[in-house]
């Protein structure tokens, strides 16, 4: 798969949908594409987070260690994972384990911050995505409360 194809994939991800293709190309060029086999972990809970991953192909489980492994969510193509650890410098909040052969673009912390500072429009996009996620989580929380009542 060449960089051009990677750029096409990234464009389909909402986070990058509005970003100039030259910048996406730069991001692809500057980051490593990694292949994981099923069962291999992309990141481990508790480790220091040094990079975020964009899944290009394949599926993975988000696993939290809580008296034994607990799968809390599943992620797949076009999902971005691990950005929380690099944004707010906390250890990985969960492990991510590939459930099939998985290809991901590894975006290092350094690259991520440089992209965001050099291209503010990307920062705004990320804010939008995070805000959406927050809104979604808040809605879930409300629903959960309603349910509890």
């Amino acid at each position: 798969m060449s960089i051009e194809q990677e750029v096409e994939i990234l464009r389909k991800i909402p986070l990058f949908a509005n970003i100039d293709s030259a910048k996406l190309k730069l991001m692809c060029f500057a980051s490593q594409r990694l292949t994981f086999t099923a069962g291999q972990s992309l990141c481990d809970q508790g480790d220091a987070g040094e990079s975020a991953f964009i899944i290009i192909e394949g599926d993975a489980d988000i696993v939290v260690q809580n008296n034994g492994p607990l799968v809390v969510a599943q992620v797949g193509k076009n999902d971005i994972i691990g950005e929380i650890a690099i944004l707010c410098d906390v250890p990985r909040t969960a492990s991510v384990v590939a459930t099939s052969e998985l290809t991901a673009l590894e975006i290092t912390k350094d690259l991520f911050f440089r992209m965001v500072t050099d291209f503010p429009e990307m920062g705004v996009e990320i804010m939008r995505v995070l805000a959406h996620r927050l809104e979604h989580t808040t809605a879930l929380l409300m629903a959960a409360r309603e349910g509890a009542k």
Binding site: I3, A22, K23, K25, L26, F29, A30, R114, D118
Partner: peptide, 20 residues
């Protein structure tokens, strides 16, 4: 061509040049 396309906007001295 590719390098010109992706690096054109970066100021000279940007660490990306050296790295990538």
């Amino acid at each position: 061509r590719t390098m010109l396309e992706i690096f054109a906007d970066l100021p000279p001295g940007h660490p990306f040049f050296e790295q990538f």
